[in-house]
Amino acid sequence: MKLSRKRINHETELNLVPMLDLFLSLIPFLLMSSVLVSFGGVYVEAPSYSKAEAQKIENKNDELDLAVQIEKGRVSILGYKKGFETKIEAVKGSFDLKDLNGLRSFLTGLQQHYSKIHSSLFHASAETRYQDAVSVLNILRATQVSENLVLAVGAVE
């Protein structure tokens, strides 16, 4: 007697439906909670007594400090030696806020002449548009012109 062997056809198909369910719930969640606007940021420092004292001690002769001021639609830069004690007449510039390319190349030029630009002290007049102040701060940070970028603010009682 012959035994006939029948082949059993096992069709193994991966069940993708639960995986699809998971994906379809994760995607709306991530889409809803993700930020559509790409945020940027400019890091600045507020004045600090301890840092100012340390800076006075550390500053050497070949190092430079910058005072950056925005007033009446122009940004002016003055160079100082030794913790803002001695003004350097050769280092000064004034630029229109509408065209900041000049400021960028001025700062790049300073980097080539001085071994280190220690601090940049930034101040803007009260009526200055915040966007203008941020644009100048952005250039100061982006060119990596100085180690510290400190906001000069009014005294608080």
């Binding site: 507020a46 803007a124 007049s125 009526e127 200055t128 915040y130 941020v134 009014g154």
Partner: peptide, 27 residues
């Protein structure tokens, strides 16, 4: 972006007085 810088100036001055010296400006 159109706010006067005075807003930031006042806030940073009071933050500095409270010992907060690290500030990020959101853009």
């Amino acid at each position: 972006k159109d706010a006067p810088y005075q807003f930031v100036d006042s806030a940073v001055a009071h933050l500095a007085a409270g010992g907060y010296s690290e500030v990020y400006l959101l853009t």
